[in-house]
Design a protein around this nucleic acid. Sequence first.
DNA 1: CTGAAAGCGCTTACAG
DNA 2: CTGAAAGCGCTTACAG
Lengths: 354, 354
Amino acid sequence: MTKDTENIRIKDIAQMAGVSAGTVDRVLHNRGRVSEENLKKVNAVLKMVNYQPNLIARSLASKKQYKIVAIIPSFKKGEYWESISKGIDKAGNEFEDYGVHIQKLYFDQYDNNSLNKTVDELFQISFDAVLIASLFANSVISISEKLDELNIPYNYIDSNISGQNQLAYFGTNSFDSGVIGAKILLNSIGKDANILVSRMIHSGDQNSNQSINREAGFNSYLNTVGYTGKVHYVDLKIGSSVFNFSVLDAFFESQNNIKGIIVFNSTCHKLANYIKVRDIHNLIVVGYDVIEENANVLREGYITALIAQRPQLQGYNGIKSLCEYLILKKRPQKENFMPIDILMKENVDYYNEQ
Amino acid sequence: MTKDTENIRIKDIAQMAGVSAGTVDRVLHNRGRVSEENLKKVNAVLKMVNYQPNLIARSLASKKQYKIVAIIPSFKKGEYWESISKGIDKAGNEFEDYGVHIQKLYFDQYDNNSLNKTVDELFQISFDAVLIASLFANSVISISEKLDELNIPYNYIDSNISGQNQLAYFGTNSFDSGVIGAKILLNSIGKDANILVSRMIHSGDQNSNQSINREAGFNSYLNTVGYTGKVHYVDLKIGSSVFNFSVLDAFFESQNNIKGIIVFNSTCHKLANYIKVRDIHNLIVVGYDVIEENANVLREGYITALIAQRPQLQGYNGIKSLCEYLILKKRPQKENFMPIDILMKENVDYYNEQ
DNA sequence: CTGAAAGCGCTTACAG
DNA sequence: CTGAAAGCGCTTACAG
């Protein structure tokens, strides 16, 4: 049990090939400066033995340092992107001993222009790989093209953009998570009930990929099942409860037959709080992301279900796979879809990221 | 960014304390054979500096090997315990370079006596830690007591047993996962509809903890919401479809007003297949665990929902925390509840363990 | 192009 | 009880 394969070392290979350890090392890493003849000898030995480099020894000896930049939205405590950030830190810590350092660059998730500014910052510094929260397709595509030129690997998280050369994507299938939102909603309110979709007003000129795709999935499900109700929309402001309350008051005065509400981002708690304060009953409310504020109103019954997407794991896997690529040349799968989790009052307390 | 804390080494501490590296090492690991005076000097230095041992160097230098035994049910491909086993292997691979070796010992999950035999095997060999699938409380308690005497750390997975000295438990709260099963079922069929609970006949004299606790949670929910229907039971045999079909035929002949079915273990697909073959409609079926056979009938619509518990993660974390305890003396939290996942047709395809 | 040697930070006999 | 030295498996200058 202790040894399934005898552990063979560079030294052993060197001896078998009749060369020095340095030469084997050069062959192993294609560092050049090896004669045709020795190259053959070493490769011959390599072919017979199953050499498993000791990574621990390698990183102890190597002074190589790697810098990974993570471009993500800024956040306050308890907000959605905090979870992603935690996952990034976790992976960063695990690979610290292997010479990996993480630097985070932030932008405003409600303003696509701010991402462009952050990108200018990015290209001022030097780095070996990038993790990108691909909220805004246009900007992300332009970053990606620059990174392609520089031959620097990059991963996407949050929402995918196809046709690009990202090493890997970690996140949900946003379209399908919209489908599930629609299904949970219609299961409870029926196919002819009216629905309110709550959106956020953005500063920039572009909505995030995630919301766009979720809404597309939602609409697709409505079409598929032959939905005959009416879908209404309100636009809220992220920072202004006063504004939001007056918008919602006006809306609910004009419409009194809404049965379900859905919010395609993590701000569902804003709506739930309105419902709580106004003491409105019998509404089915579906939102996204288990942040503390959402979880609280879910527990109290003002949100019916939350759909979640393992944010911490997205950050963790996004960084980890870049580390493994840099250190081990291990290429990850290109598309890595996170599970789409459904949380209700009864299971939300167990939803932590193990 | 590259250095938040200057990296101080044993050598540095030795120099500062005016002793040799060997002495520092002895102090660090309580290996004894250090004079009162030197002990003081080294500890004084240790108090000022934040020494972070380089684990990579440590494990390269140390020839220490650790053996962890995992006691789990045997399984065929695609069965529930395969996932747990995969998680165990994953953690084993990650810690291989650190000198950790895993040995698995199997027992029959439907026969508590078989576990006792496996335990006899266990105490024939030598090992440093144990991971136990705590299906059968009695046997597991007796193993635990022996391990306590030997001062060998052990973790539980699958279902918890309180009052024992396990280092940690990784698994769901079985009671609450029974509550959620009941909620999903009653949400669809109402509080007065009749329910069929399908059980498995065991060879031993004891049911598994997991099933017992899930059923307790299920019954508790029924009481809480004032359920007025009738709960029926059938006992099936794991290996005999012929037997099962005749039992179910007999049951459904005598009862024609069953609205919902629940199965508290991973064998729900057996019931779903019966329903499929007999072409029975309008039954809400809730089961546990996303094994391939269950997922297939969920996709086809013969199971309404599956409740899952991250089996791979249980195996992975169960081993990982033992490794960290052995290598780093890092003590894990004692109770680590897995999320309780709800899977429907629409999100099951994304349910993989990242 | 090549090999001998030093070094990564720690642990482990060993001589005293 | 103590320190100097060797060694874990690899990488990295360096002299030739």
